[in-house]
Amino acid sequence: MDTSIQMKAMSSEVRVTILRLLAKPHEHFADQWSADPAELGVCMTLIAKALGVAQPTASRHLEILVQAGFVTVAKKHRWSYCARNEPMIAEYLEWLARELAIGKGSQGAV
């Protein structure tokens, strides 16, 4: 995965908030009736509502998170459901920890 896309994804408080909300789908999206939010994911409409933004705005933020690999989208009937991609988030955090490690031997280009 391109870490520059991942860093862009994490540079927005709205996108970080989306990841926080999706971390506890039953807590934040208990009113989702069309599918279990922990199993299939959360409907994009409910994410927009939770953020207090228009659906196209939420969709754009979600698209960046999908490009970064942090969110997956599953389609069921008319709806698209979003869920965190935990392995990719963990991989990014491990990469970031290595990059920011004190005493790191090599320095990459900026």
Rank of each mutant, 00 (worst) to 15 (best):
Q55W: 07
L51D: 05
E13I: 00
R15H: 06
S80T: 07
M1G: 07
C82S: 02
L93Q: 15
Q32V: 06
W33C: 00
G103R: 14
K49C: 09
G52K: 00
I89P: 10
Q67A: 13
E27M: 12
Q67E: 14
L62C: 11
Q32S: 05
L40P: 02
D36A: 03
L65N: 00
I47R: 05
A58R: 08
E99K: 05
V73K: 10
F70M: 04
A9T: 00
A35I: 05
P56A: 04
G108Q: 14
I89Y: 03
V14H: 09
Q107E: 14
A68T: 08
L65V: 09
H61T: 05
A109Y: 08
K49P: 01
G105P: 13
A54D: 14
H26A: 03
G41A: 06
E94P: 05
S34A: 14
R98Q: 14
A50K: 15
L93D: 11
S12D: 08
K75R: 15
Q67P: 02
T72M: 07
S80D: 13
A9N: 00
T3C: 03
I5D: 07
R60S: 03
H28D: 12
V66M: 12
G52M: 00
R98G: 14
I89E: 01
A68E: 11
C43K: 04
E91M: 09
N85Q: 02
A30E: 12
T3S: 12
A97W: 09
L22M: 05
L51W: 04
Q107T: 11
K8Q: 11
I5R: 03
P87L: 07
T72E: 12
I5Y: 00
V110C: 08
K75N: 09
A38N: 01
G103K: 13
E86Q: 13
L46G: 06
R78P: 02
I18A: 01
G103L: 04
H26K: 08
M88F: 10
A48D: 03
E94H: 02
Q67H: 06
A50F: 06
P37K: 05
E94M: 07
T57E: 06
L62N: 07
I18R: 07
W95V: 10
L65H: 04
F29G: 08
R98N: 15
K104L: 02
G69E: 00
I64H: 04
R60D: 08
L51E: 10
D31C: 04
E27C: 02
D36W: 07
S4V: 08
G108C: 04
S59Y: 12
A90Q: 08
I47V: 15
R20T: 10
L100M: 11
S59M: 01
A23F: 05
S106P: 08
A74Q: 14
I89F: 01
A68W: 10
R20S: 10
R98L: 14
V71E: 03
S106F: 15
H26L: 11
